[in-house]
Amino acid sequence: MSFAKQNPKIPEGINTSTENPLKEFFIMFGGVLFVLGATVALLMLFANTLAPYIPFRYEQQLSNKYAEWSNTESDQSVAFLDAEVAIQELGQRLATHSDLAPEISVQLHLIEQADVPNAFATLGGHIFVTTGLLKEVSSENALAMVIAHEIAHIKFRHPAKSFSGGLLVQLFLSAITGGQNAAALQSTAQQTGLLTMLGFSRQMESNADDAALNTLKKYYGHLEGTEEFFSKVLAQHEQARWQALFTSHPDLRQRIDHIQRRAQQQSGANSGDNTAQATTPLDPRLANFGA
């Protein structure tokens, strides 16, 4: 065997492959996304099924600080405190007509946010109503619709479902990413525990709407004025269609249509006494506050 006179030409494609790396990438990416998505869906289902069995007092213990937090803000005006009391009274009256489980109770709080008409329910039966919402409604019925909707969320344990679902998913994600998301997990737990609006699914919102209408039907005997707040919001924002896809609240128009349909069915059922269907005026403590 003699020494080579020159280096041989090595054939290409033995140590490397000429396949487009994008193809490999998308196959892997799609596969991993699919498995992740399926696992997350499974975990959410798990949480939704089991969360209602968590005793309500655990939720209350978790969220006791809201009550303290709300009480310590003593520098509020008398009108604000009066309005909060009025809201609480209305909430308690509605709660007695909401078929709540015996261990569940609701607590209402007013928060000073004049430019945001909003209300949300969170862990432990706490419901927050912004002062901006009081300005938006003209009758007690419209306000009651919003509050009854939030009470229905509490009734169906939606905050517990969405909190435990979110926590499970975060735990899962941080487990597979090797603990790099531990900080994210902590902050999520804190944020979700605090006053962030919990994300409810469209199904949850529809259920809450239905239950709220049932409550109002029992409480007032009719459904007049219930859609007012929602139609006002629609008129103000004119939600774009694509936006509706991403928000968890079902398209407002659909919700209003649904509420109106129910109201019409209702008025058709007892068409004998149309005169009884008048909206109740807003409690003066609330009405004066808005002005």
Partner: peptide, 25 residues
């Protein structure tokens, strides 16, 4: 970055990391 992400995905499912093979070659 692309090779790194691609290799990271490979780390989950296993197999030849083709994007690194060309690099080392």
């Amino acid at each position: 970055y692309f090779k790194r992400v691609s290799a990271g995905l490979r780390a989950l499912v296993g197999g030849r990391i083709r994007s690194y093979e060309t690099l080392l070659d």
